[in-house]
């Protein structure tokens, strides 16, 4: 099931989603990760971040809420320490997930990653719901989304994929703003903002109170948004949100996706991407 994603051929359309696959190293101990189309690595910021207080995870009947808060070692450590390790086990272009707290930070991180041969695409996360003063705040305003797109495009020759939030009134207007600003592709949806309470304490389970809801429960919403956006733009769309089976991948492709990311399912079944690829190839 070869396909082309923003000018780069991938062996199949299955891509583990950012935040559920680390930098690939843990999964490389489980199976040969070169079977993947590619994978999107953990959201990376300019500086090292610990992220939010614990608990960061709350379970739901058909998924989970997370509020990790972009824990990552910072872009320089990713380039100097993580990517050389990844090179030993993954021999394809990887998708770099970029996050920031200002337009300048997005551009600075993107510029550093642009120099890495291992990186195929830059996925620009303007939709993280778990950080204040950044993330989703940028993805909720078409003008700001366009500004970040332009700023990143100006510093890289790699394809730029804007990762969109579902927590907006009109995702199509954001998608179009990114396309008009030069985005090479779009990926959607990030998590839906949600919360759970602890019945014993009467308080939110998540320390940050709210977090991003993901898992099979959001699949129909994701599918609908991918369909709307794919019909409104002329650039490739990567569909994601609750995809947990080969049939889910097929549905996302039917909705207009060029490739499909698999996120939360990796946390429950670490072999899910391998199993889905084998089923799609069968």
């Amino acid at each position: 099931m070869k396909t082309t994603l923003c000018g780069i051929e991938i062996d199949n359309p299955v891509i583990p989603a950012s935040g559920t696959y680390g930098y690939g190293l843990e999964f490389a101990e489980l199976y040969d990760i070169n079977i993947l189309g590619t994978f999107s690595f953990k959201g990376t910021t300019l500086n090292s971040r610990f992220g939010n207080d614990l608990p960061r995870i709350a379970e739901c009947p058909a998924g989970l809420i997370n509020s990790v808060g972009l824990q990552n070692p910072g872009v320089d450590a990713v380039i100097n320490e993580v990517l050389p390790e990844l090179k030993k086990v993954f021999h394809k272009p990887v998708m770099a997930n970029v996050c920031g707290f200002s337009v300048e930070e997005y551009a600075e991180v993107a510029e550093k990653l642009d120099k890495c041969d291992q990186i195929g695409w830059l996925e620009i996360n303007i939709s993280c719901p778990n950080v204040h003063g950044g993330g989703a705040a940028f993805g909720a305003d078409p003008k700001v989304a366009a500004k970040i797109t332009s700023a990143v495009k100006a510093v890289t020759t790699k394809p730029v994929i804007m990762k969109l939030s579902p927590n907006v009134t009109d995702i199509v207007s954001i998608a179009k703003a990114c396309e008009d600003a030069g985005a090479d592709g779009l990926s959607l949806i990030n998590t839906l903002l949600g919360m759970r309470f602890d019945l014993k304490t009467g308080k939110p389970i998540i320390a940050n109170k709210m977090g991003g809801y993901s898992g099979p429960g959001i699949f129909p919403v994701a599918l609908r948004m991918v369909y709307q956006v794919a019909n409104a733009v002329n650039i490739p769309v990567i569909g994601m949100g609750g995809v947990s089976s080969a049939d889910d991948v097929r549905e996302m492709l039917m909705a207009g996706a060029t490739a499909v990311q698999i996120g939360t399912a990796n946390l429950v079944n670490p072999f899910i991407c391998k199993e889905i690829i084998e089923e799609l190839n069968a």
Binding site: G22, F50, R56, L64, N66, I205, L267
Partner: peptide
């Protein structure tokens, strides 16, 4: 002990300093 997402080190759900 902590609430965990994956249990094998990829989700960063149970980090501590």
């Amino acid at each position: 002990e902590e609430r965990m997402g994956c249990g094998f080190g990829v989700c960063m759900g149970c980090s501590c300093k």
